[in-house]
Computed example of a mutant assay.
Amino acid sequence: MASEVGFSLQTLASIVEGRIQGDPAMIINGLNTLNLAGRGELSFFANPRYIHQLSESGAAAILVSSDYAHLVKNSAVIVADPYLAFAKLTHHYDWRRPAQPGISPQAIVDPTAVVHESAQICANVVIEAGVKIGANVYIGPNSVIGSHSIVGDACRLEANVTLYPNVHLGERVLIHSASVLGADGFGFAKEQRQWVKICQLGGVRVGDDVEIGASVTIDRGALADTVIEKGVKLDNQIQIAHNVQIGEHTAIAGGTAVAGSTRIGKYCTIAGMSGITGHLEIADNTHITAMTLVSKSIDKAGAYSSGTGQEPHQQWKRNVVRFRQLDELAKRVRKLEQTLAEDNE
């Protein structure tokens, strides 16, 4: 997609430490896919599945590994990892503008709050007592920053983000719209046939360079804090319950729910629609595939699955029936084994 920003191919190649095959002086105005890229646009080739598009692409230049550079009809930037190079270059074409210093006259800022002069506070933002807003922060329209919260330098909160009281963000945290950090955890004690609420007295701590997708909910701790460590990436529509701890650089895909007091290690990947029950320990470098239910702790790194893959509907129905018969079949097998053992005596 073209933008108002343009860089020479030489400049872009220098950013990703690439070697140019073609015209280093050409201006690249945007990035696009192999099949849609055209004049003035840069694309990338990282998946052999699309090799048929490589030689046919109208892209002005393509990020490509040395093994495939000979197939590029126009210019190429030869790099070790085209997808990583593409990721780095997207930052130079991002639609987000840097924070424009100033506080909208429609914002409400408590007199005890400290807002850095370089921060941008948009219309209808509410900043409560004792809040600290760091340098180059962007707070989008209609967002609410609860009392005694801290928003570190270079954070960006898009429109309609809510931080309850006592939520601390590190530096360069990006939170997308409609996410809520610090709502009450789901804590209740049973009294006869009624529930007694347990007031949630902890907070939320988020490390540096965390990204939180749209409509994510991260509950505050019951006593201690819920903790999201540095570099964690959370997709849209994820539920993180009270007192959960997520280790550095773990990535969790959309629709996943993590129950209270579970500790997830560093460098984990958790695919979409997974469920993790409470009070578990998940080892570093664990990889959980889509729709997996994790109901016991994982103490050894590896890949874990429990969801069933798709199959033709009629076959799926037959397998459901067989699944319901497993217990009876297991009893019959045990009985046969006992009979065979007795016959061999």
Rank of each mutant, 00 (worst) to 15 (best):
residue 68 Y to V: 00
residue 301 A to M: 08
residue 232 V to N: 03
residue 319 N to D: 14
residue 11 T to H: 14
residue 271 A to P: 04
residue 333 V to M: 13
residue 113 A to R: 04
residue 126 V to L: 05
residue 61 A to S: 09
residue 223 L to W: 09
residue 58 G to S: 11
residue 113 A to M: 08
residue 177 S to R: 04
residue 143 S to V: 05
residue 2 A to R: 14
residue 94 D to A: 13
residue 288 I to T: 01
residue 183 A to S: 15
residue 314 Q to W: 11
residue 216 V to L: 09
residue 287 H to S: 05
residue 327 D to N: 08
residue 141 P to A: 15
residue 74 N to L: 07
residue 247 G to W: 00
residue 340 L to P: 01
residue 188 F to Y: 15
residue 303 A to Y: 12
residue 98 P to A: 13
residue 241 A to C: 11
residue 211 E to L: 02
residue 59 A to N: 08
residue 13 A to L: 03
residue 286 T to M: 04
residue 105 P to V: 03
residue 307 G to R: 06
residue 116 H to Q: 02
residue 46 A to Q: 07
residue 138 Y to T: 15
residue 68 Y to W: 12
residue 289 T to M: 08
residue 75 S to Y: 03
residue 118 S to T: 15
residue 279 H to E: 12
residue 89 L to Q: 05
residue 191 E to M: 14
residue 132 K to Q: 15
residue 338 Q to S: 14
residue 59 A to M: 06
residue 137 V to F: 01
residue 281 E to V: 10
residue 46 A to H: 13
residue 55 S to N: 14
residue 187 G to I: 14
residue 161 V to W: 02
residue 255 G to E: 07
residue 66 S to Q: 10
residue 244 V to I: 10
residue 6 G to M: 10
residue 168 H to L: 09
residue 82 P to E: 04
residue 84 L to T: 12
residue 311 E to V: 14
residue 29 N to C: 14
residue 85 A to E: 00
residue 117 E to R: 11
residue 21 Q to A: 13
residue 35 N to R: 15
residue 29 N to Y: 15
residue 4 E to N: 14
residue 163 L to N: 01
residue 181 L to G: 05
residue 48 P to N: 10
residue 308 T to L: 14
residue 224 A to K: 14
residue 78 I to N: 05
residue 138 Y to R: 10
residue 39 R to T: 14
residue 167 V to I: 06
residue 223 L to A: 09
residue 17 E to D: 15
residue 76 A to D: 00
residue 253 A to I: 10
residue 336 L to F: 09
residue 247 G to L: 02
residue 120 Q to A: 12
residue 19 R to M: 12
residue 195 W to K: 08
residue 236 N to I: 07
residue 291 M to Q: 15
residue 206 V to S: 00
residue 252 I to M: 09
residue 180 V to R: 06
residue 183 A to V: 05
residue 275 G to K: 00
residue 317 K to D: 01
residue 106 Q to G: 06
residue 69 A to D: 03
residue 203 G to K: 05
residue 184 D to P: 07
residue 74 N to M: 08
residue 272 G to P: 00
residue 28 I to N: 03
residue 305 S to A: 15
residue 216 V to C: 07
residue 200 Q to F: 04
residue 204 V to N: 03
residue 42 L to K: 07
residue 267 Y to D: 11
residue 200 Q to I: 09
residue 54 L to T: 01
residue 149 S to Q: 05
residue 93 Y to D: 02
residue 265 G to A: 04
residue 284 D to T: 04
residue 231 G to T: 02
residue 197 K to G: 10
residue 164 Y to T: 04
residue 54 L to W: 06
residue 16 V to S: 03
residue 161 V to T: 04
residue 110 D to V: 03
residue 286 T to A: 14
residue 291 M to G: 11
residue 33 T to R: 13
residue 269 T to D: 00
residue 173 V to Y: 03
residue 207 G to M: 01
residue 72 V to F: 08
residue 87 A to D: 03
residue 35 N to V: 08
residue 100 Q to Y: 00
residue 332 R to I: 05
residue 254 G to M: 09
residue 59 A to Q: 01
residue 261 S to L: 09
residue 208 D to A: 02
residue 47 N to M: 04
residue 204 V to H: 05
residue 66 S to M: 02
residue 155 C to Y: 01
residue 265 G to Y: 05
residue 126 V to T: 13
residue 334 R to C: 00
residue 342 E to Y: 08
residue 159 A to C: 13
residue 305 S to R: 12
residue 87 A to Q: 09
residue 53 Q to M: 06
residue 239 Q to I: 12
residue 6 G to V: 04
residue 159 A to N: 13
residue 337 E to L: 11
residue 294 V to P: 04
residue 338 Q to H: 11
residue 37 A to N: 07
residue 200 Q to R: 07
residue 96 R to K: 09
